[in-house]
Simulated assay, not measured.
Amino acid sequence: MPTELDAALHAIPGYAERAQAADAIRQRLGEHRRSLLTVDPTAISLGQARQQITEQLVDFAGRESLPADLAGHGWGRAWRDSMRHAEQQNLQAILSEASTLADSRVRLCIERNSAPALEHLHQRLRDVLFEARGTSRLRDVTLAYEEIRQAQKTITIQVMNPGPAECRGNIRPTLDLLHTAGEIADQFEQWPRWTRDGKPGSPQYDERPPWPAGEDMNRLDYTTAYLKWATTSPARFWVPTIPQLQAAAVRHHQLEEARLLHAQAVRNGYTPADRWTIPAELSVDTMLGRLDMKETANV
């Protein structure tokens, strides 16, 4: 059964063909390497082959003129063994380069066209939240929800931090972006972290979030308790595409700035000391309207 990540990636046009090519070449490269490691004790060594060929060439040249096509002349077993060895080494180099190229094409396919994969995961998220609402097998649904989020993280990191995994730099900013804007579209509204007097100011980091959380309140733990909260919460869950994620991150930053500016104005006496409200132009509905995304995954 395909994983959520596999199913999402196969929603990308052209991905299946590129992945199949990469898998086939990788398999052949592995088989070829194993065959080279299998040593036939009866086979002539490359050093012996070179010595025998050298002697044959000298003897032949002493009796008659050397042929124009030395490579095409039959020089016996030593020649065949040495040529076969060279061919195998060359083929391994070619297979290795082809494998690297095929993997690169798979990565580029994902990096340049991730939207269908993330849209597929968004629909799966809606299905899973709907299923969680009416099932007693909440553990199974929780595992499916976590798998969707892991697939989202894998794809988003690959797009935001392109290139082979071993060459990627710091992915912490991408993970932070996913947490603040990539899971709940209206997280700012759900957990604004006002000051203790109810007015905007510096965030109160000891204020508990509305969802069940562990010791690290800034981390979303995918437990059955979290999924129970998700099915009854007004929060608007989503799996955003990369442009949607970036737009949500900009909105989150603008809200933080507007809230802190209001708090400063209150402290300086320029603004009445009332609780700040989110401006209409920065509301989540306005953002989703600009993104032409009318439905989030809340149920």
Rank of each mutant, 00 (worst) to 15 (best):
A98Y: 05
S35A: 15
L46P: 05
F60Y: 12
D59I: 01
Q51C: 04
H32T: 14
G30M: 08
R105I: 00
G72R: 03
H85V: 01
S99P: 03
L37H: 15
T42I: 04
C109E: 10
L95E: 06
E55G: 02
R84D: 10
C109P: 07
L46V: 15
H85A: 14
R33L: 15
A78M: 00
P67D: 05
L108E: 15
R34H: 11
R34E: 14
G72N: 02
A61S: 15
V58D: 05
T42K: 08
E97G: 08
L57A: 09
S35L: 12
D59S: 03
C109F: 10
P41N: 07
Q51T: 14
A78Q: 01
A61V: 08
A102I: 07
S96H: 06
A78E: 02
G47N: 12
H85I: 00
T100I: 13
D40V: 03
E31I: 12
S65N: 12
L70I: 12
S82H: 09
I53C: 09
S82P: 00
M83Y: 04
Q48L: 10
G76A: 06
Q89W: 05
R28P: 01
F60N: 00
L36R: 14
R105V: 01
T54W: 09
Q89F: 05
E64A: 15
G62S: 09
S104Q: 07
S35Y: 06
E97P: 00
N90F: 05
R50W: 12
H85G: 08
I53G: 08
I94M: 13
D40M: 03
L36F: 06
R107Y: 03
L29K: 15
A78V: 02
E31M: 11
G74N: 11
A102T: 08
R28M: 12
A61K: 13
G76V: 04
D40Q: 05
A86D: 08
Q51W: 07
S35E: 14
Q56K: 10
S99R: 04
L108W: 09
A98K: 09
Q51D: 11
N90H: 10
I110N: 01
A71K: 05
G74V: 03
A71T: 04
I110T: 08
L46C: 12
A71G: 02
L29F: 12
W75D: 04
R50L: 14
I44A: 06
T100W: 02
W75G: 03
D69P: 03
